[in-house]
């Protein structure tokens, strides 16, 4: 293996790109879970967002319209989950799984005509001065706009949850829905909004894969990214900034693994390719045991249905 063949600046630069899909999906799921709803359909919403974003992006030749379509598609699909879990009071785990299975089928169906079609060129932003800094410039300041949008979303979520009345109400609904209901908050409506936000973010994350990262459409291209995003929320102990850290650590690992493959490390490609999943499991174990005790930070009503008896 030739480690010197790896360009470390390029590796660090691609880290942010590799992290953005799970960052977007993760922060969306975080908001959903803070409202007390466990939506296991992230994978299904991501892949649907990926194909809808790609299809609209290619048809209109506009990445922006593609991302908008992906967010709408993700939100629409999440509303299916919302309708079932919030109004028909179905089991959230089972419904989330159904959403993933359905999303995988639906995306493959929509995507039939788009296999092998070349994606768009999404322009990189050039910020005067900042982009020209040696080393740091290419790593931090020469990406496409979505990378920065995702960071803004994280900052926005953090500020909203921490400093605004809306964020407080959202947390109240997630911690104790009966009390929130007694105070006169519309639990179901608030949860639906949180679910829709989660769906839109997952859709954006998926579209980032198909429009920027790959950029192409292949069936099942999310390859577990949605599940990794769910694990990311546990890793982050339901705190927005930690999602950012987790996503970038994970992105770093992914690009390192890809670079090792390219550098010809004497391990079959398959074993390197499974490393992201193994590391995610390891992180889950560390976070859920010992001092970490992730579940102590989990919203108290996570996964429970709300049914007002009167």
């Amino acid at each position: 293996m030739d480690l010197s063949s790896i360009n470390w600046i390029l590796l660090l630069a691609s880290l942010m790109v590799a992290a953005t899909p799970i960052l977007l999906a993760g922060v969306g799921e975080l908001v959903t879970e803070r409202a007390g709803v466990l939506n296991l359909g992230v994978e299904g919403m991501m892949i649907t967002g990926a194909i809808c974003g790609f299809a609209i992006g290619v048809e209109t030749n506009s990445a922006i319209l593609g991302f908008v379509a992906a967010a709408l598609a993700g939100a629409a699909l999440s509303m299916l989950f919302g309708l079932l879990t919030q109004y028909l009071l179905s089991n959230q785990v089972a419904t989330g799984l159904a959403l993933t299975l359905f999303g995988l089928g639906l995306s493959a169906l929509i995507g039939q005509g788009y296999i092998g079609i070349k994606g768009l060129e999404v322009a990189k932003i050039h910020i005067p001065l900042l982009s020209d800094i040696p080393v740091l410039g290419p790593i931090l300041f020469r990406h496409d706009a979505m990378v920065y949008v995702s960071i803004f979303i994280v900052a926005g979520v953090w500020a909203t949850l921490r400093y605004t009345r809306a964020g407080l109400i959202l947390r109240a609904v997630g911690e104790n829905h009966d009390a929130a209901h007694a105070l006169g908050y519309k639990v179901v409506r608030i949860r639906l909004m949180a679910i829709a936000f989660g769906g839109a973010c997952a859709g954006l994350g998926g579209a980032y894969l198909s429009l920027v990262r790959v950029p192409q459409w292949t069936e099942g291209m999310t390859a577990g990214a949605g599940w990794i995003a769910l694990a990311l929320v546990v890793f982050a102990s339901w705190k927005p900034w930690r999602i950012l850290i987790g996503a970038y650590l994970f992105g770093g690992l992914t690009v390192l693994q890809l670079n090792l493959q390219a550098a010809g490390m004497k391990v079959p490609v398959e074993y390197l390719a499974m490393s992201p999943y193994l590391v995610t499991i390891l992180v889950l174990v560390i976070m859920s045991s010992g001092r970490g005790r992730a579940h102590l930070n989990a919203p108290a009503e996570l996964g429970r249905s709300f049914h007002a008896s009167s």
Partner: peptide
């Protein structure tokens, strides 16, 4: 894929 979506719908 339509059959896969069909099965998901059933659930």
């Amino acid at each position: 894929a339509a059959i896969q979506a069909f099965q998901g719908m059933l659930l």
